[in-house]
């Protein structure tokens, strides 16, 4: 295949992706009551953590060297990619049920990559709640904490949000792919792994070493909030450079995921075990 053919194929796929997701989102919006309850539920859930921060900082001034507004930046950096992922790539969470029910067969008799069909299978409007809350916190946090906005910081922010989104999508696939190997797998294992993201809402400095390693290496959520925030807020720590490593971590996660995805597909089709 030539380069230009590849490119047009990619464009076609991107267009299809957008169409699939937008139609789903539009439909959800049409069910008024369900839509608002979804938004309300999601906002309350993430707002609860916020209430906690407000209460906490009503009692103390600093948390492990981080001010309230700086923690808001961490919170925002976590919620924004999480909200985007919910909006545009919530499908992997249906993967296990697709495989279990045999509905995955259907994806294999369509002329589009199964990974894309899985990713677009679900679009959760709840993501709007997370996204808007996250954006608010990020904007308030960066301005109130006296951060210097420069062009390159804006670019850095954009790149790290995108790379965080990539990481979260990869993780979504990764944890749910367990369904290919263990069809009856505990639904709680993927959920638990995904929920470790809550650790990323607060500065890593306050955690024990076990948790630090957990959210840096095992479930690298620190790369979506803490490390990029070190760069954005000009924190002087020896770990600051890791903020630039986020795209690399995403790349590794994506490579690992696509390798495993291919193995999973082969297994499903009964090639090699």
């Amino acid at each position: 295949m030539t380069w230009s053919m590849n490119l047009s194929r990619l464009r076609g796929n991107a267009r299809l992706y957008a169409k699939l997701q937008l139609i789903q989102l539009r439909t959800v919006v049409e069910y008024r009551a369900d839509f608002w309850i979804g938004i309300l539920g999601a906002s309350l859930m993430h707002g609860a953590g916020l209430v906690f921060i407000v209460a906490l900082f009503g009692q103390i001034d600093e948390l492990g060297g981080w001010s309230a507004w700086e923690v808001a930046v961490l919170y925002g950096l976590t919620l924004i990619p999480a909200g985007l992922r919910e909006l545009f790539a919530d499908g992997p969470w249906l993967l296990r049920s697709l495989v279990n029910s045999g509905e995955f067969d259907r994806l294999l008799v369509r002329p589009v990559s199964p990974a894309m069909q899985v990713a677009t299978r679900l679009a959760s409007i709840h993501g709007v709640g997370q996204l808007s809350l996250g954006l608010t916190l990020l904007i308030l946090g960066t301005t109130r904490s006296g951060m210097d906005w420069t062009l390159w910081k804006a670019i850095f922010l954009l790149v790290s949000v995108l790379s965080s989104l990539g990481l979260l999508i990869a993780i979504g696939f990764l944890v749910n792919m367990i369904g290919f190997w263990e069809p009856s797998a505990q639904s709680a294992i993927p959920t638990a792994y995904a929920m470790l993201i809550d650790f990323a809402k607060f500065p890593l400095d306050i955690y024990s070493n076990v948790i630090k390693v957990l959210v840096t290496v095992v479930a690298p959520y620190a790369f979506i909030s803490y490390f990029p925030a070190l760069v954005l807020l000009d924190k002087e720590t020896p770990w600051r450079w890791l903020g630039f490593a986020s795209p690399l971590v995403t790349l590794l996660a994506v490579l690992l995921t696509s390798w495993l995805w291919r193995k999973a597909l082969n297994r499903y089709q009964g090639v090699g075990h």
């Binding site: 069910y31 009551a33 369900d34 839509f35 309850i37 979804g38 938004i39 309300l40 539920g41 999601a42 309350l44 859930m45 707002g47 609860a48 953590g49 209430v51 906690f52 209460a55 906490l56 709840h126």
Partner: peptide
């Protein structure tokens, strides 16, 4: 949308019951 209700319910209870703080 029972998931939405579930979340709302959990969030409100965890705050107002004093679980979170």
């Amino acid at each position: 949308n029972s998931v939405g209700l579930m979340w709302a319910q959990q969030a409100v209870i965890s705050v107002l019951s004093g679980t979170l703080i």
